[in-house]
Design a protein around this nucleic acid. Structure first.
Lengths: 199, 199
DNA sequence: ACCTGAACACCGTTCAAGT
DNA sequence: ACCTGAACACCGTTCAAGT
C-alpha cells in the first residue's frame, strides 16, 4: 500500500512493470535505479541481475510503450492508414508520462524498438511507395512524431507545475496539440502524395 | 595548457564559452557543472553566481548555437529559401557536438531560443503563406530537424566508439545523412506547396 | 536464480562567509 | 562583483559474498 512491491524474488517482467509505473506516476527524471529498487524492496544492485544497465531497462520500456500502439477497428488503406498509424503511435506515447522521450532516447542510441518505424514504413509502402521511399518517409514522420509528442508532454508537466512562464516561448500555438499533430502528419503525407506523380 | 582557464574572476561570457568548448570536446554527458568549474579553476558553487542553474546555462548555449545559423550568400526566395534556412540550421547544429540535443532539450522546456522557429516561419511566410500556417509548418519542420540531427549526432559518437552493433537497429539508411535530411525537408516543403492550391 | 552489503566515483545545488 | 568551503541529498555501477 505504501508503494512497496512485496513478495520477494522478482522477474525481469516485474522490474519492467514497476519501472513503467514509476515512469507514469513520477516522470522520467524520477525513474532512478535506486528509486526503482526501493519500490521493489530490493537493493539497487539487485536490478543489475535483470538488466545490465539503465539504458537497456529504458529500451525495454520503450519497446513496451510502442508495442501498445495499434489502430482500432478495421485497418484503412491508402493515406488514411498512414494517418491512423500515426495517430495510434501518438496515443501510445501519450499513454505513459514522458513516453515520447523514453522512446526517442533509446531510438537515438540505436537500441531496440525499430517496431514504430517499421509500422509506419509498412503503412506507407501499402499506399504504393517503394520500400526505400517508405523507409525514409517513415523516418521523417517518426522524427516529427517523437519531437511533437515530447514537446507536448514536457508542456504538460510544465503546466501542471504551475509555471506558465508568460506562455511566450515554446513553439506557440500548442493550444490544440491534436490539431497541430494532424497538421504536421498531413504535411508529410501530402508531400509524399505529390512525389508520386512528378509533374 | 592543461585545460585550466587561468586569470581568475570570470564573466558570464567566459563561463558560456568554456561550457561550449567542453560540450564540443567531450559531449553533453560530460558537460557537468563540476567539470566546467574545474576547467575555469573555480569551485562549482561559483558558477551559480553567473547562471542560476544548469538549465539556464544550457539555454544560453542553445541560443549561441542556433544564432550562428545563417544562410551564406544572397538569400534566395520561395521554397529555396526554406531549404536554405533548414540547411543552415542543420549546419549550425552540427557545428557543436550534441548541438541538436542541447537545442531540443531547452526548446522542450520552453526556455529561450525561439529564434530557430522564427527564422523558419519567416522563410515560409515569405513564400506566401499566412502567419498561422507558417508557424505550424515551421514547428513541424523544426521537430524533424532536431530529431534528425540528434539522431545523426548520436550515431556519430556511437560509431566513433567503435560499437557498430551490427548496424541493424537505428533507422537504417543513414548512409548519407545530408540526403536523408534533404528528403525530409523536401517532403515538408512539397506538402506545404500542395496545400497552397487545394485541388 | 536472485539478492545483500559495501564501496567507488560521481552528480546539482545551497548558503554562509570571505575579498 | 565574484568566489571559497563545506555541506546536503542524491546518482549509476561493480563485485564479492550470501541463500
Amino acid at each position: 500500500m505504501t508503494g512497496s512491491e512485496n513478495g520477494r524474488r522478482h522477474t525481469r517482467d516485474d522490474v519492467a512493470r514497476t519501472a513503467l509505473r514509476i515512469l507514469d506516476d513520477y516522470g522520467l527524471p524520477d525513474l532512478t535505479m535506486r528509486r526503482l529498487a526501493s519500490a521493489l524492496d530490493v537493493q539497487p544492485s539487485a536490478l543489475y541481475w535483470h538488466f545490465s544497465n539503465k539504458q537497456s531497462l529504458l529500451a525495454e520500456l520503450a519497446d513496451r510503450i510502442v508495442t501498445r500502439a495499434t489502430v482500432p477497428g478495421p485497418a484503412p488503406g491508402g493515406a488514411a492508414r498512414v494517418h491512423a498509424e500515426a495517430a495510434a503511435l501518438r496515443d501510445a506515447l501519450l499513454a505513459y508520462r514522458d513516453g515520447a522521450e523514453v522512446v526517442a532516447s533509446t531510438l537515438a542510441l540505436g537500441l531496440g524498438s525499430t517496431v514504430a518505424h517499421d509500422r509506419l514504413a509498412a503503412a506507407i509502402a501499402a499506399d504504393g511507395f517503394d520500400p526505400n521511399t517508405a523507409r525514409r518517409a517513415a523516418s521523417t514522420l517518426l522524427h516529427f512524431i517523437l519531437g511533437h509528442v515530447s514537446h507536448e508532454q514536457q508542456r504538460m508537466q510544465y503546466d501542471s507545475l504551475g509555471v506558465l512562464a508568460d506562455h511566450t516561448g515554446s513553439l506557440r500555438d500548442e493550444d490544440d496539440p491534436a490539431a497541430e499533430y494532424a497538421f504536421g502528419v498531413g504535411l508529410l503525407v501530402s508531400g509524399l502524395e505529390l512525389s508520386r506523380s512528378p509533374a
